[in-house]
Amino acid sequence: MDSLLKHMVHMTGHRDHAMLDMSTISAVQEMAGAAQTRMLGLSRSAGQDWVRSRASVRGDHPARVEDQLGTGRGEPLDQYPALARCLAEHSANATQDEDGRSTMWVPIWIGEHAASCVEIVRTAPFDPEAVHMIDGIVGVYRNFYNLLDYSERDSLTGLLNRKTFDDQLARMLQANPEPPLPGQPERRQLTAEHEQWLAVVDVDHFKLVNDRFGHLYGDEVLILIANMLQNSFRAHDRVFRFGGEEFVVLLRAVTEQDVGRIIDRFRSAVERHVFPQVGKVTVSIGFTRITASESPVVTLGHADQALYYAKSHGRNQVCHYDQLVADGLLQTIAPNDTVEFF
């Protein structure tokens, strides 16, 4: 009991999803006498369901983060038939015995949706006491996850808020390979798995919307655009409301050939949409590549420069910072330059 209480105190002392994942699987590993425990992320992409390991712990080794950012798809859900049936039937858990090992999957249900799942592997069958212990720990995780998630959300749109942005961007910078210095050989090829992007979205003439139709309709425009952002980008991308009419998107694992097309598809969807009472609304977008050699302020400043160019050259368009620089239309930001945001 003392050990369980210690784990509960440790779990509820975090303000970070990754640390909560690790402390939860550590608690399950010890209290259930497991050989291995993983926190799995569940997502859907390209018409297929995927399972990826976010954190894991084996034996007496410390828990470790594996793919908290979700830069890789992981494995198809079809490779986990027992878990797939569990999710389809909205069951509390699923078990499978094979080669003298017992595996249990416990989805973290938030309403009708499960975006996470605890996987526990034991060398003995799961007895009722172990199942009860696991359910209790998962219940604490679910409740505290909801509290953390609520604190990170914008109250109007439900998107991630600005205070969570710095941490998310810092993690993406750490996950990116640093480019080689001039004259040095390429250490790692930059593939779609490593390419990350930041886009800044600004609603065109939003003040006129508020002045002409009132703030209630202005808020409705922001909510609808937030919904369109979530529907236009993938589950493992991150969308933030920065305040006012400005949004930021962190796009993960997408090639340079695809990123402009993906962002412009969203811009076009906004342009085609008819907003209640307001009618037509457009957005301007600037985006840039995220690299480990540049600070978060510089990275955000590059995207903001591209956005400013889009807004000052006709609006309702997408501008790529690196392309603007290559074409001589923008100058690079020096590290000590002041960056002005909308």
Rank of each mutant, 00 (worst) to 15 (best):
D2P: 14
D2S: 06
L5E: 11
M8Y: 15
H14K: 10
A18Q: 11
T24W: 04
A32H: 12
A32M: 13
A35W: 09
M39Y: 14
L42N: 07
R54F: 13
V57W: 04
P62A: 04
V65S: 13
G72H: 10
G74S: 09
P76V: 08
H90P: 03
W105K: 01
W109N: 03
E112K: 01
V131Y: 06
D135T: 05
N146A: 07
S151Y: 01
S155Y: 06
D166R: 05
Q174Y: 07
Q174A: 13
P185S: 11
L198A: 09
A199R: 01
V201R: 03
D204H: 09
V209H: 08
R212K: 12
F213W: 13
L216K: 12
D219G: 14
A226Q: 00
S232L: 02
F233L: 04
A235Q: 06
R241N: 07
F247Y: 10
F247R: 03
L251G: 13
Q257V: 06
V259T: 07
G260S: 10
R272S: 06
R272W: 04
G279F: 00
F287M: 08
P296N: 09
T299V: 14
Q305Y: 00
G314F: 10
Q317V: 05
N336C: 12
D337F: 10
V339Q: 01
F341Q: 02
